[in-house]
Amino acid sequence: MTEETFEIELTVNGVRRTARAPARRLLSDLLRHGLGLTGTHVGCEHGVCGCCTVLLDGEPVRSCLMFAVTASGHEVTTVEGLAAPDGEMSPVQRAFQECHGLQCGFCTPGFLCTVTALLRDTPRPTDDEILEGISGNLCRCTGYQNIRRSVRRASELIAADPASGGPPAGEAGEGGR
């Protein structure tokens, strides 16, 4: 009963990575256990909590609902790739700290990826747009109030320094791990 494995080649946080995995390996498991990027968390593995959210070609996806093989040829950004190459946290990350938008930090990577994409598409969201934007992610600790505040604050930080908004669009090899 040896499982067939497939070659997977993808770009993660600007770095080309290759791996072999069986067809059923989830993207979340490949990232976490195959590539050692454990910042992406799994809270349900059935697509509801949003902890596992990563950016696939810039769009938020639930990495627990995707097979790793289907990510082949795509670009993935995880929480490890949100800070600038010199380690400076992104405006979204900084805003979450400033506004106490996290407690245990388990849901946080999913929120950070979701919000990064939200603010790229909607840099000045209304309160309703913020609510809508984060309404697919569960947090059991914060009651969301400070997460909503964090999103507003991140939007201000980005407005003050527009170049800082998105995840660093790294070239292959840059900031390699």
């Binding site: 990027l37 910042g39 929480v79 380690g87 946290m89 700290q97 996290l102 930090g105 946080t108």
Partner: peptide
């Protein structure tokens, strides 16, 4: 604890 938790 935040910087650690925010950067994976």
């Amino acid at each position: 604890e935040d910087p650690r938790l925010l950067t994976g």
